[in-house]
Amino acid sequence: MTGNRSVLSGWRAYLYVLPILVLSGLFLYYCIGFTVYTSFHSWNGIDTDMKYIGFDNYIKLFDDKSYHIALRNNLIFFVCTVGVQAALGLMLAVLLRARLKGHAIFRSVYFIPTIMAPIIIAAIFRIIMDTNFGSLNEGLRAIGLDFLAVSWLGDPKYALMSIIIVNIFEWMGFSMTLYYSALLAIPDEIYESAKIDGSGFWRTLFKITVPLVGGTTSTLVILGIVGSLKTFDIVSLLTGGGPGRSTEFLTTYVYKKAIEEFNGGMSAAAGVTILVIALVLAVLQIQYTNRQQRDL
């Protein structure tokens, strides 16, 4: 922000935010309210029979090992995917910004997985990552790296990493696109003067480019928080949370509790914790960004 004072004020501001509040209120606030309400009840998700049980669902939830694993996995997933996607996305965006021949095609290739339905990506990676006949392991064996030809999805040690790899494949193009459009907005003059100053590639990257795309990075971090908390399809299609509980995520946990185990109350309690985590992280992130911008 260039000025601390907003330029406009008054009751009309409410008109601008009203439409989104009305629609969100209709669906999301009701959903949140319902979920919070259910989380204090014992409910099988089907009939009208709801029994108030206070904090029992939360007590059971926090005592559940699977829930702890889910929390841990969500955290690892968030850190790894956001970090790698951002780094890789920025690097490719910078290279693409050179606008050499074919850059538009490259950009589309990186972005297509983001567009594709997760079901097809998961199906293909299940085939590629197969232990015995998958092309990944066949390739590794062919170049003599037999020891790397592990059971990507069937070994608790590697399954989470495999999900992260697939997620990076799916979403790196998105980070790349956001960075690319941010880079387009940076005038060439800045780089020209940097060059005249004798600044090398890495110095220019870290001293000029990275700070200038800071807004994009902070958007990506928030998207990463949201994305990792919402990740469901790719996990349930790739491993279903297994082997054992090794790749349980908060969403797969919520899903299993509600749909497979008919425990609507505990599922809702887990759902509420997702909302709280998201809110806390988003608030922290926004305040961090604001402070940084003030410091600039």
């Binding site: 197969d130 232990t131 070994d155």
Partner: peptide, 15 residues
């Protein structure tokens, strides 16, 4: 090997 990563349908069946 890797049975734990394989679903009955379609993986084990088709692949």
């Amino acid at each position: 090997d890797g049975a734990l990563g394989l679903s009955t349908y379609p993986d084990a069946r088709d692949q």
